[in-house]
Design a protein around this nucleic acid. Structure first.
Lengths: 215, 215
DNA sequence: CGCCTCGTTGACTGAATTCAAACCCTGTGG
DNA sequence: CCACAGGGTTTGAATTCAGTCAACGAGGCG
């Protein structure tokens, strides 16, 4: 696994440490580890004991069934934090989607981080529960719309959105096949809701329509 | 809303405060509030600021879409804790499924409960993320099997399982219709995997088969 | 006893998957 | 500079699993 270390990097304004991450301001700054595209950050069953803040890049958190079916439970973008566990072992896999830099905060035996971690855990819990509604009760168009709206919001509400992940990743996040994801993108394009600039970046033409679709 | 107060009640052994709840041992014991079947404990949008431990009964946590579609994100049984929020407002609804007694722990401005709440939040996060796999990637039989296995485990691994909730609730938890839930129960019955003692209690005849189905 | 809700069963429909083929970026090497 | 891979993506046709609509059955409560 490719991973080495460097110093702090400047981030665009909307990627600056958020109110959530601000909770970690009191913690001594850690060096940055690099992960190239597709490399594992941790695996299910591995011993846990750290959490991770993304400096740049994107990460997918997922689980597998025995026959290879995969469910991505979350994407994490620059500025976000992930990796804390209820147990002493990881219950999920974490992989870099693209070249990614993460700050690793090791949990030392003595120090109590619960005050910093609780708001992050609660935010994650709310997000997961909201995603349950999407997977349990929304159809393909609504799922993709909800995903795009979420990506827009997390990238500062700009018209143009970068999708760091493949169609396969999007499908495995939304509980759909790549074909269905592709067909929905085409449908949104034909209806003038979005415009595909290239495979990984789209322009939102009708934000309101998208918003309504994703509820 | 029907809710009044009484003193502590004895619980069967497998419903005794678990290791999780044990974290609350240091907190002064609160009186018990009663909620009759179908009554609201809190609503989405309401001001949060407490958490709840179930003495007896069962609770559903859910969200609604504008057109009435409902997704139950979690069931909580006796001994379990719920209701903490990332925000100062509730993002979900909580309702008593049956006659239910809950101990309400109000979060006071000064006291810091993060040490007690973090493990509960992390456990909830793991459960929610595992449920995402069920909703995103498993078919109807697998979903019901996973649900039954979960209920068995939470009721101490006994052969006989009580289902405090209706088929509608199960459907809204598993992202299925009541008809599909009913058909799957019938299929499991016909295959000799379970036996329906009555509508709300089933006997597990082939635990291993069920386990494999739910992955 | 009879109502009324909840659950089951059946026939049909439809949205998403599966299987298969074509297309198109993006990087590589001639 | 252009041809050529090769992966990822799109499109099409056929299939299937769960949903919908509708009728029937069973259990619980007044």
């Amino acid at each position: 696994m490719y991973a080495h270390t460097t110093s702090k990097i400047a981030l665009p304004s909307h990627l600056q440490p958020s109110s959530l991450s601000a909770a970690l301001d009191s913690v001594p700054l850690q060096p940055v580890s690099f992960f190239s595209a597709g490399t594992e950050i941790y695996a299910q069953g591995e011993k846990a004991g750290a959490f991770y803040q993304i400096e740049f890049g994107a990460v997918r958190i997922y689980r597998l069934l025995a026959d290879g079916r995969r469910q991505i439970s979350a994407f994490h973008l620059a500025g976000e934090t992930f990796g804390f566990e209820a147990d002493t072992t990881h219950h999920f896999f974490a992989e870099a989607i693209n070249a990614t830099g993460v700050r690793v905060f090791r949990l030392t035996a003595g120090a109590d981080m619960s005050r910093q971690l609780l708001p992050l855990a609660l935010k994650g819990l709310t997000r997961a529960q909201e995603h349950l509604l999407v997977l349990g009760r929304q159809n393909a168009i609504e799922r993709v719309a909800a995903f795009l709206v979420d990506m827009v919001e997390r990238q500062g509400g700009l018209r143009q959105v970068e999708l760091p992940m493949s169609r396969m990743d999007i499908g495995d996040y939304l509980g759909l096949t790549i074909e269905t994801v592709s067909r929905v993108f085409t449908r949104l394009k034909d209806n003038g809701v979005i415009r595909l600039l290239n495979l990984r970046s789209i322009e939102i033409l009708k934000q309101d329509v998208l918003q309504d679709m994703g509820e």
